[in-house]
Structures are given as structure tokens and as C-alpha cells.
Design a protein around this nucleic acid. Structure first.
Lengths: 343, 343
DNA sequence: TTGTAGGCGTTATCAC
DNA sequence: GTGATAACGCCTACAA
């Protein structure tokens, strides 16, 4: 087992100084051709590669970015993550992934841990608990220390930083409008408890679309499920007792589960009830019937977030005292029509 | 904006030496109560936290582990990743995630990048291309440099290191046996091209089960799909022209897609055809009918891999020259029965 | 052309 | 009790 070799060891072996080795390996013209060749040959032989940690300590750049997401076994976050990773990779950055598990405390701990030099910037989506508590001191402190931060999807107005979101309001509006245009009158909404920012925006879009088309807002058409629901009793009762002809769900899991229950109750999709979900992951594509779904373009979202972050990181290098400017990029959601609505 | 503060700055402000500050913050009894308190108060005020990079340089420990997986938007790998992340978190380790995207080159590059000091050890599943090329020099070199490595799921006998796998052969055998016990006679296998180690083991289990139950191996019952197949023509033809009464699929996507096609062809599930898949992710649970599936227990796999790795990392600290021993942990797959087979 | 010295932030050893 | 010094691995301005 040959441990990684260092400049110092090469220098000792070849009886030259460390700086000579360092320069030779960078093809500095200061060093004679002879020594350069000798050193490079030796270095190659021993697979010399500079130690990232030492480089980071010196340059104050880790080439790592921290990504904190609420959940990894979740199609949307996973696609965003892939977008981030792919873009980061092209720029020579690595991604440190932390899962907050929807917990405020884990989010805080992870952030503080990483903020102490491990990374050059953060990309994150707020945990459910953080949104519920409305406590963002950890984000503010991080920003305050000069650490770039990009929020995506689960964002908040309380924190001033770069953001990437989709137009949730408009997307929901568009989905409901489609249902109305198809002749649906009793359109239900299946959503989460209300503190989740994105769900709330989608609900607003739903309300507005109804209003604009002179449909009354009927509270009995709204089903609010706990975020991580396993239990299907609430849904079963809802579908058994509610008179409806269309359903908008704020994610694809709710949608597919709801479709199953509706089908079990003898409803035909889309003839009796139309369904539209959010997320457009593999579930939407492979459900029976295939689910019409609002595509959130997670991968692009991740890519844009990573681009924004890396730009900021690398710009910070150049002009130290520039006026900070923050942007919010809005990605247009698109409705992917499949079998669960009438085309 | 207050940049992170360092020991040196605290020392200067308080007009003491750096070492005094360092000791005071560690509650060393060498330092007087007065100075200790003064320093700690100041440090707290400025949110002092030691710089991870500097600590790493000194300790030669990064408290990071590198995870290289072929694909992140993939239920099984995602669950393994979660298992790794969760366990790592409890031990104070962070996870750097790289996606090889099934590419040999990306795998090599990522590995070399991380191996230069960024992490303390690797957990990985081989990319498809790596298995196809059968080239493992990058793994061997990494191990040779004293970097601990744990392979999971997509492993190879060519590399000697810790491994975590499921009993693919037995799991497939068990699944086929169940189908046979249910009275199925013409059991098809939907698998990937053969270079994928795990698919091949599953195929072997399928062969053996047939053989042990005196069923002839009929090549026309085997459908080999390209790994990332989007196109459904091959499957359509297969289901349209093949006489079968059961199907074993090596992953849940193949299974759900196949079920859809079979249903479109007028086959009833499970009456006419029974289906069993591998993976047991959300697709299996929410498919119509719900899919009987071999659970691979990805999360546990990740946890065990992380435990093995961290043990090795931390043992390396202690006894430097101990005889290396490597283990292969086998996780028992379990068959989760649902509606796509007869109970 | 080569080498020395200082510094990145920290800890540990040893001297005062 | 407190501080100076060396070291982790690397880079670079400045000497020689």
C-alpha cells in the first residue's frame, strides 16, 4: 500500500526543494528542462496529485457546494438534485448532499456544520418544519457570513437571496382552467396542510381560476391531507361522500392514490372524473390511466440554481465589495396531458 | 457582512496569543478562569467555529464520505443513498454524492477527484459501462492508496474490498418458485442486457427454479431490454406474440410497463398473467394492480455499507498495520405480495 | 535556475 | 498561566 505522496516527499527523494517541485509540476519556466522532466517523471510514477484540502486552505475555495433537501426519496427533489449535480460537475464542483428529513433542527445543524469551511455555497429547499416555525435565523446568519445561498421551490420572502421557483399559482390556475374548459363543474383540490408555501400558492391558483370562471368555491371539495400520509381513510371517505367531476392534486402521489380510490369506488377516469397532478414523474407516466400532470422541470431548476450559485461564488472572488443583487428565477411549469383528462 | 472569524483575529482583539485562545476554547485547565471566560464570551459573540478545512489538514480526516452511484433518479439507489446519509449523519460524517450516469469515464474522474483528500472513504455501485468494460483499475488504485472502499449492489469479484449485496439469485428463485407453486407454467423473464451483474444473477435464479421444478427453459420466454429503454415496441411485440401466464421482471419499471402493455392486450392480472418485479418502490405500491415485488431493502443496504465504511475508516486510525480483512454482507430480499399475483 | 520564508487556520509540544 | 514554534500540504513572492 503506497499512501498518497506529497511535494515534500518528492523533494526529499530528488534532493531538491519543495518549491522547485511545485514549480516544475506547473511547468514554470523558472525551472530547467532537466529538473522539470526528472520531477514530472517521478511525480507521474507515484501518481502525484495535489491535496485538495491543502489547496482549499490556501485558496479559501473548496469547490464543494452544499445541497440541503427535505427528502431524497422523492421524485421532484431527486430530479433537482440531478440537475444541480450535473451542472456542478461541468464546473468542477462537487456536491455535498444533506437531507433535512423535513426537520428544522437537522437543517440547522447540517447548515452550521457545512458553513464552517466545507463548502463555497448552499442550495436548499426549506424543510416543512422550518416553514411551519417560520424561523430562518440560520439562513440569515449564513448569508451574513458571506456565504452565497440559493433557495429553490420551498422558498420564503423572509430571506433575501437568490431563488428559483416555478409559477405555482399560474400552473394551478392553468390546470383548473383546462378542467373548466373541458366542462368540469365540481373540481376538487387535494392538497397538504396549509403551511407549505408551494401548496398554498397552488391552492390560490385554484381559487382564482374558479372565481374567474364563476364557479363557487365549495369548501367540501377541498381535502387537506397530512404531508406524509400513509393512511387512506380520509381520502376514502372524501371520495365516497363527495360529488365531484374533477380533481387537482398538488403532487403525483396524492393524485395516483386518489385515482386508485376513485376507481375502486367505481368511477371511470376520465369519463366520470378527471385528474391532474403536479410533479410529472415516473408515477404520472406509468399510472393507469396515465396522469395528466404539471411538469415542474426539476432538472432545469437544479441546473439554474447551480448556475446562479456558482456565478455568485466566482464573482465574489473578483470584486469583493460590489453591490449585492439577488434574483428570483421563475420557471414556467407546463401541463403534460395524458389519459386522466380528456384531450 | 461579518466574515467568519478566526483564532488569530480573536487573539489580536483580546491581545493574547493564538494558542491561549485555542486552549481556552477547549476549556484547557492550563488557562486561567478569567481569560477563559473572556475568550469564550468573545468567541460566542462572534459565532466562532473552527474551520473544517484547517482541521482536516491537520487531522488528515475530512469526515466526508464519497458516494458514487450510477443514477440518482432511480428508486433503489435513492433509498440506499438515504440509508447512507442517515447513518453517516449520526456519526458526524457528510456525504459527497457523485452520479456516474452509468459512464465509466465519469466514474473514474469523480473518483480521482475525490480521492485527493476530499473524503475518507468511498461507497459505490459500479456503473453499467464499468461492468461492461470490466476495467477496475481505478478501484484498485484507490484501495492501494489506503482509501477504504465499500461496494454495494453492483459489485465485482475482481476487486477485493467490503461489499453489501442482496441474494439476487435466491430472491429470483423464490419469486419464480412462488409463481410455480401458484400453478404457473409459462413464466417469462423480462431483464436487461446481460452484462449487468445483478440482472444476470437474477436470471440464474430464474433458470434454476425452472429446472428444479421440471419446467423447460424456453428462450422465447425471455425478453432482454436495453437498460434505459424508452421505446416499447419490443415489449409490445413480446406480449402480443408470446404465450405466457406469469412474468418476472428485474425491476419495477419493467414490471409496471409490462403490466400496462399486457392489460392493453386484454390480459387480466393476475387471473391470466401474474407479475412479480424487483425493487418494491412506490411504483409497485401504487400500480394498478399493486405489484408483487422483491424488496431489496435499499435503506438497510445503505446503512450497512456506511457502517462498514466508517468502521474501517475509524479503525484505520488506531491500528495502522493490522491485517486487512474484508467482508461481504448479504441482505435477504423479501417478497412483498400484492395484487399482481394470487395470494 | 533554485531555494527560502511566510501564510492559509488549527492543534500540540515545549519553553518561559 | 501564557506564548512561541512547528507542523499538516501547498503556493508564491522574494532572495540567492
Amino acid at each position: 500500500m503506497k499512501k498518497k505522496i506529497t511535494l515534500k516527499q518528492i523533494a526529499r527523494e530528488l534532493e531538491v526543494s519543495i518549491s522547485t517541485v511545485s514549480k516544475a509540476l506547473k511547468n514554470s519556466r523558472e525551472i530547467s528542462k532537466d529538473t522539470t522532466e526528472k520531477i514530472q517523471a517521478f511525480a507521474k510514477l507515484y501518481h502525484y496529485k495535489p491535496n485538495n484540502i491543502a489547496l482549499s486552505l490556501k485558496s479559501r475555495r473548496t469547490k464543494n457546494i452544499g445541497v440541503i433537501i427535505p427528502d431524497i426519496v422523492h421524485h421532484f427533489f431527486t430530479t433537482v438534485f440531478r440537475g444541480i449535480e450535473q451542472f456542478a460537475d461541468t464546473k468542477g464542483y462537487n456536491v455535498i448532499a444533506c437531507v433535512s428529513d423535513e426537520s428544522f433542527e437537522k437543517e440547522v445543524i447540517n447548515m452550521e456544520l457545512l458553513a464552517n469551511g466545507s463548502i463555497d455555497g448552499f442550495i436548499m429547499a426549506l424543510s416543512a418544519e422550518t416553514q411551519l416555525k417560520n424561523d430562518f435565523h440560520h439562513l440569515k446568519e449564513t448569508i451574513d457570513q458571506g456565504m452565497p445561498l440559493v433557495l429553490f421551490d420551498r422558498v420564503t420572502d423572509e430571506v433575501i437571496c437568490d431563488k428559483v421557483v416555478i409559477n405555482d399559482f399560474e400552473a394551478a390556475y392553468m390546470a383548473v382552467k383546462k378542467l373548466i374548459d373541458d366542462g368540469r363543474k365540481r373540481i376538487a383540490l387535494v392538497t397538504t396542510e396549509s403551511y407549505l408555501n408551494v401548496s398554498e400558492k397552488r391552492a390560490q391558483g385554484y381559487y382564482q381560476a374558479l372565481k374567474d370562471h364563476n364557479l363557487e368555491l365549495d369548501k367540501s371539495l377541498i381535502l387537506r391531507l397530512p404531508y406524509q400520509f400513509e393512511d387512506e381513510i380520509m381520502s376514502e371517505t372524501f371520495f365516497a361522500t363527495t360529488n365531484l367531476d374533477a380533481v387537482l392534486c398538488v403532487n403525483e402521489i396524492f393524485a395516483v392514490r386518489s385515482m386508485r380510490i376513485a376507481q375502486r369506488n367505481g368511477l371511470r377516469i376520465p369519463e366520470d372524473v378527471a385528474f391532474i397532478g403536479f410533479t410529472d414523474g415516473i408515477l404520472s407516466k406509468l399510472a393507469t390511466p396515465a396522469l395528466t400532470s404539471v411538469a415542474q422541470h426539476g432538472e432545469r431548476m437544479g441546473e439554474i440554481a447551480a448556475r446562479m450559485l456558482i456565478e455568485k461564488i466566482e464573482r465574489d472572488d473578483e470584486k469583493e465589495l460590489e453591490e449585492e443583487t439577488f434574483r428570483t428565477e421563475v420557471i414556467e411549469a407546463t401541463l403534460i396531458e395524458r389519459e386522466s383528462t380528456i384531450n
